[in-house]
Design a binder for these strands. Structure first.
Length: 604
RNA sequence: GCGCCCAUCGUCUAGCGGUCUAGGACGUCGCCCUUUCACGGCGAAAACAGGGGUUCGAGUCCCCUUGGGCGCGCCA
């Protein structure tokens, strides 16, 4: 009756070890059922011929066979608890437990030939944001992990927009999420699924649960619920629904109250989740209440919707923020009632702000579009994000291919990470320096519409400017950590005469620099070929003859040519700017200001 | 309040009982390179939260404390 047609479930024999918890023993879990690719229980066992003797499989079923787990032993073998199809088992010291599929190796015991199961069992992950705001950095990382995991396994990542909250969901948010994912290069497979469109299906499932006796109508009013929670809190009990309508006859229903449908959740025993990141987590069922499946207006709640959708979409692995960890327990109850096998789950730690608290508006939480505007490149952001919580030895940099190749959930840590702009910036700088010049020009151009500080170039780059950009890029890119800085550093290329000088440049010129400009002007003008080596030779000659330091000449030159005190190597600047423009900019500083008034004598 | 999760340099992390007088990266500081600023090179300071166990041996296993975080809706 509860059997899933396609999945003749076979209860896992979960032996117990009283202490069970992995404590860093994630590794031990991983040892036998590596949650990542190959070692996963759902695949053929590593090195396993498939003909593994049954007895071995039973052991494999236990989670921590090595270290610390000495108390694991043959323990108990499950009995006929198969009325929970996907579930399981009997623990020596605890009643019925509910299992998510996670590391549970029961399928190795499935009657379905291993090979066949393997083939039909491609990984399907999903990213399921709710469109109530932009795609923030935490969501972006969740999406990245889902994407990486799916790609690594040769599976798919689906995208589902959880828009059942009609009040708060907006089209703008949906657009921002789609745009953010695309910019990050995280393509999803198939069509975007809008949860709200599936409300009928959700309702139908709720009704079926009702019909099967796994759910009931609850007529408690919001006021009643509030009172209930308050009382519980006052008594030091968890604020939970008390189940007052759980066994009441519908005939007692008060008139005029539209009921909600609640799940009849198990009250005894405990619910166990073998999370791929968190390890084994257990909750006493008495602490979990009868959640609402269908609201009084007939719309599904998130809890119901996720379960139904994940099931219908064929999701095999749920990777989401660990703020959903408690939800997992409740969702497991729904799977149980439905007789569906729960997907494997991985709850990844959240990203925190500098103060260690969950990233939120008060940290100035930003959408990924903001990172684009700040000039970070998607590949750099991806690399930074993947290293937040995941590691592969000492390695810091990964190409997309390498990320896909190496990514696995077993190496995802369980402690939250703080977002650090300095490191992101440094990584972005690495990516800029490592990029090919034409790619950088293209990236700059493509990002221009979003870039902060790009107002000066409303029409983008014209061909001559593009050429100059390309020519100057080697000197420009090693001075920029973001595209914004890159553009800013390139500003002298598209600045128009007479240049605006910043204070430091002005100072350089006022401090006697103009004299050197004047001295250089005729020598430059006499140059037959305008190249960096040519101008350098000229300047060095001048310096030699006048016995001044190179810096005393180079700096004023820089000020005149770029309007700033810093720039790429000055001879490269000279070359990129070209003879006419260079001489004109120098001339501007020698004679320009005087035209309009008395230049204060620098030496007086 | 209750439940769950977490805990190595300021930050991200390596470490999966002995090779740890704890490694890498960012940041910080110093030196070198140098026409500026960068880049690059070299070097330095900087951490196993505390307490109990287990063990011949613990950053690594267990427990407690402390400190953080998340959750507790007819929100998702």
């Amino acid at each position: 009756m509860f059997r899933l047609a396609s999945e003749p479930a076979r209860p896992c024999t979960k032996t117990t070890s009283g202490r069970g918890r992995r404590s860093k023993g994630r590794s031990s879990l991983a040892a036998s059922f590596s949650p990542s690719g190959k070692g996963r229980s759902r695949r053929s066992p590593p090195g396993g011929s498939g003909g593994t003797p049954h007895s071995t499989l039973r052991k494999v079923c236990r989670s921590a066979p090595n270290q610390g787990g000495r108390s694991w032993n043959g323990g108990m073998v499950s009995s006929g608890m198969s009325h929970f199809p996907f579930v399981v088992s009997v623990l020596e010291d605890a009643p019925t437990s509910v299992y998510a599929r996670g590391r549970k190796p029961d399928r190795s015991e499935s009657p379905i030939p291993a090979g066949q199961r393997f083939m039909a069992d491609a990984v399907v992950t999903r990213f399921a944001p709710s469109p109530t705001g932009f795609l923030h950095i935490g969501g972006a990382r969740t999406a990245l992990f889902n994407w990486l995991y799916a790609r690594h396994a040769g599976g798919k990542m689906l995208l589902r927009i959880e828009d059942t909250d009609r009040e708060r969901s907006t089209d703008a948010a949906i657009a921002a999420i789609l745009d953010g994912l695309s910019w990050l290069g995280l393509e999803w497979d198939g069509e975007v699924i809008y949860q709200f469109t599936r409300a009928d299906r959700h309702r139908e499932v709720a009704e079926s649960l009702l019909a099967a006796g796994h759910a009931y109508r609850c007529y408690a009013t919001p006021a009643e619920l509030d009172a209930m929670r308050e009382a519980a809190r006052a008594e030091g009990r968890p604020p939970r629904y008390d189940g007052r309508w759980r066994d009441r006859s519908p005939s007692e229903a008060p008139a005029g109250v539209k009921p909600v449908i609640r799940l009849k959740a198990p009250r005894e025993g405990e619910t166990v989740l073998d999370d791929k990141v968190q390890g084994q987590v257990r909750w006493p069922n008495k602490d979990l209440d009868d959640l609402v499946l269908l609201r009084s207006d007939g719309t599904p709640t998130y809890m119901l919707a996720v379960v139904v959708d994940d099931h219908d979409m064929g999701v095999t692995d749920i990777i989401r923020g660990d703020d959903h960890l408690t939800n997992a327990a409740r969702q497991l109850h729904i799977y149980q009632a439905l007789g569906w096998e729960a997907p494997a789950m991985a709850h990844i730690p959240l990203i925190h702000g500098p103060d260690g608290a969950k990233l939120s508006k008060r940290h100035g939480a930003l959408g990924v579009d903001a990172y684009r505007a700040m000039g970070y490149m998607p590949q750099a952001l991806r690399n930074y994000l993947v290293r937040l919580g995941w590691s592969h030895g000492d390695r810091e940099f990964f190409s997309t291919q390498e990320m896909i190749e190496h990514f696995d959930l077993a190496r995802v840590g369980r402690s939250p990470a703080r977002f650090d702009f300095a490191k992101l910036e440094s990584m972005n700088g690495h990516y800029i320096r490592a990029s090919r010049d034409p790619d950088l020009v293209a990236a700059l151009e493509a990002t221009l519409p979003y870039l902060a500080g790009a107002e000066r170039l409303p029409r983008g780059f014209d061909p001559p400017l593009r050429d100059k950009l390309l020519a100057a890029m080697p000197g420009l890119k090693e001075r920029a950590k973001t595209l914004v800085e890159l553009l800013d550093g390139a500003a002298f290329l598209f600045a128009t005469r007479p240049l605006e000088l910043d204070a430091r440049a002005q100072g350089l010129l006022d401090a006697g620099g103009r004299a050197h400009l004047e001295g250089l002007l005729p020598r430059f003008a006499a140059l037959s070929a305008w190249t960096a080596t040519g101008t350098e030779a000229t300047v060095r000659d001048y310096v030699g003859e006048t016995k001044v330091k190179l810096g005393e000449v180079a700096q004023p030159l820089r000020a005149a040519l770029t309007g700033r005190a810093t720039s790429p190597g000055i001879f490269d600047v000279l070359e990129v700017l070209g003879r006419d423009e260079s001489l004109a900019r120098m001339q501007d500083q020698v004679s320009g200001p005087t035209a309009s008034g008395e230049r204060p004598s620098p030496s007086a």
